[in-house]
Design a protein around this nucleic acid. Structure first.
Lengths: 198, 198
DNA sequence: CTCGTTTTATGATTTAAGTCATAAAATGTA
DNA sequence: TACATTTTATGACTTAAATCATAAAACGAG
């Protein structure tokens, strides 16, 4: 995360997005660095028969969509606002200038990319070699660590729908629902008013 | 990739690894930056019942295992030599110093991480939402682009075993073998003396 | 060259997850 | 507050890929 002041110093502008409004679309060339001020942005792909795969969900203070920006490659996925969101957008030339003039930021970017690569490494192994219950639980545990889910007296509230969990793990809703029920039976998590706690 | 001279200037040492010898193991804390001079290194996980998932295969001039090094986190996977390999290893304090004193290297690191994140993004979507043939073909096409497979008059030679393709895509050998046969029937690739060409 | 190991190959069978159908809560909104 | 939409839920059925069994070809070490 880069401080709002620094981004604005280099000319970053605030933009608002309605719920379900796209920030950028698969196949387009990147033009800006994006960082969330408030709201929630989802990056996802759709396969030929319309099935969604969520690459990640990003919250306030997080940036998204940088890899293709650095590589001058087309976006491999869509980014859309899950809820009304405000985002800082800095155009590429200014962003490059910012990086050149602030070497310490590069280290932050490296750490951020490393973190996301670490997540993808774990999840790709989980997704491809483990059973649904294991996948769902790992995703939840990862979310607790890095999506900063809120904690109350029932434990961490997993604010993802069953459908979203499915789209993040490559499982179908029904399978996720069944897996969560089984995990509850095993005492791995709680379901209170249909909400999942861990 | 960082030039061998620069790495050696900061004290990097050459190390040799026998076939199947581990470079580092899952759960250990990172101590060095590693870059391949020659040979082939595989990073992979094993699930509870011994099934392997290959995170990636790295060839000469490529570095591997940096994300946990930057994050001070334990390795999420093992790295082992697929064949006899020579590697440059630079310890963490020296590597940090190198980065601080050579800001341009940071940009290279960023691009490298961005590239790998891009690969993981594509593959994770492919793996979770598509059928075996699609997965295998995407992996092969990616490999042609980034693993620099050799090209001869039959096309690009995919020098991965069926087992490795399976471990990279989360499929079983038999499924990969059948998928490859079908892809040959469809004219998407060639099988000559059991070797796969595209 | 020989023998053991690895890789590719193919058919039969099983099974876990996907699909389909249907519905009741919960949530949002006019 | 009423109604449409979304989310969660459950049972029955189907299917694609995993599993199991077996073997031939290729490769590699001695």
């Amino acid at each position: 995360m880069i401080s709002q002041e620094l981004l604005e110093k280099y000319g970053a502008l605030k933009k608002s997005f309605q719920k379900n409004e796209p920030v950028f679309e698969e196949g387009n060339l990147p033009t800006h660095y994006y960082q969330i001020i408030s709201g929630e942005i989802k990056m996802s792909n759709y396969n030929d028969d319309g099935r969604e795969f969520i690459q990640g969900i990003f919250y306030k203070k997080q940036s998204f969509g940088e890899p293709p920006l650095f590589l001058n490659q087309r976006y491999p996925a869509n980014a859309i606002a899950v809820e009304e969101s405000t985002i800082l957008a800095l155009n590429k030339p200014s962003f490059t200038k910012l990086l050149e003039e602030n070497p310490a930021i590069s280290i932050q970017i490296i750490e951020n990319l490393a973190q996301r690569l670490y997540y993808k490494s774990i999840m790709s192994a989980e997704i491809s070699t483990h059973d649904p219950e294991h996948r769902v639980l790992k995703l939840i545990d990862y979310g607790i660590l890095y999506f900063n889910f809120p904690k109350d007296n029932n434990g961490y509230l997993i604010h993802l729908t069953r459908q979203q969990i499915g789209d993040l793990t490559g499982l179908r809703v029904e399978t996720v629902i069944r897996a969560i029920k089984n995990l509850e039976k095993k005492g791995e998590l709680k379901i209170i008013k249909r909400k999942v706690y861990r």
